[in-house]
């Protein structure tokens, strides 16, 4: 337990002292808001308020996904500069390291997402307190899933030049398949079938359901799928950290 806290505390302290990164994660949501705004302008067809409800959870998903993968990127960076070695050689259970990294990545990703959330009253989404709580809970689950995805991938990489390439190659399809910014209604059936395997789709749907009250997947299914992703990916990351053939 102490090891787990140490892993998380280390990462949060680093975020805190890295003022540039901290400022970026506070300002970045405004950028997404801009995306949101232009989306709104272009889609008067769908009706302003309706599309806002549709796209806001998508933008949350976008922000969570990219921030948590960026946080995971720091693992690769740590490995490259040799700092990860000092961490991995500490007598901390490997599962604590993996879980700590997943949790700290999720926390780091929730910083900009929370800023976005503060805009809810301004945007006039008109959420009831219950819906709001539901949204926060689903954001947490989404953040954990994306972070676990990032950590399980990053744990395997040694080079900070290769990881972003692979990262983007995985990230973009996951994101576009998720229906975060536009519905997949008109997409070919095979594409929609593929979306069933996309954790981002479940996460976005869960957040969207909290906002609009309608779900594409049964929420229980989404929660199970996402939890399974978190568990399996954390386990995979644990295995990589435990292999220890060459720290």
């Amino acid at each position: 337990m102490r090891g787990l806290i140490a892993v998380i505390l280390l990462d949060l302290k680093r975020l805190w002292v890295d003022r540039v990164r901290l400022a970026t994660s506070l300002i970045q949501p405004l950028l997404y808001l801009f995306v949101l705004g232009s989306g709104l302008g272009a889609s008067s067809v769908m009706g302003g308020r309706g599309y806002l409800h549709y796209i806001f959870p998508g933008v949350l998903g976008l922000s969570l996904l990219f921030s948590s993968v960026f946080a995971a990127m720091l693992i690769v960076f740590d490995r490259q500069i040799g700092f990860l070695k000092a961490v991995l050689v500490a007598p901390v259970p490997r599962v604590s390291i993996a879980l700590g990294k997943v949790l700290s990545g999720a926390l780091q990703a929730l910083v900009p997402a929370t800023v976005l959330l503060l805009l809810v009253p301004v945007l006039g989404l008109g959420l009831s307190p219950l819906r709001f709580v539901e949204l926060i809970a689903s954001m947490w689950l989404a953040a954990l899933t994306f972070s676990a995805l990032g950590v399980a991938t990053a744990a395997r990489f040694r080079s900070t030049t290769v990881f972003p390439i692979i990262g983007n190659a995985v990230l973009l399809p996951l994101f576009f398949l998720s229906g975060a910014l536009y519905p997949l209604d008109r997409a070919p059936p095979w594409l929609r079938a593929l979306a069933h395997a996309d954790p981002v789709a479940y996460a976005v749907d869960l957040m969207r359901g909290a906002v609009i009250g309608r779900y594409a997947y049964p929420p229980v299914l989404s929660i199970c799928v996402l939890t399974a992703f978190v568990v399996v990916l954390t386990w995979l990351a644990t295995r990589v950290f435990a292999a220890g053939d060459n720290l």
Binding site: R14, F83, A86
Partner: peptide
């Protein structure tokens, strides 16, 4: 352990 390459967190 003191490693051959530095292993401190520079920003902390």
């Amino acid at each position: 352990i003191v490693f051959q390459e530095p292993a401190l967190e520079g920003k902390l």
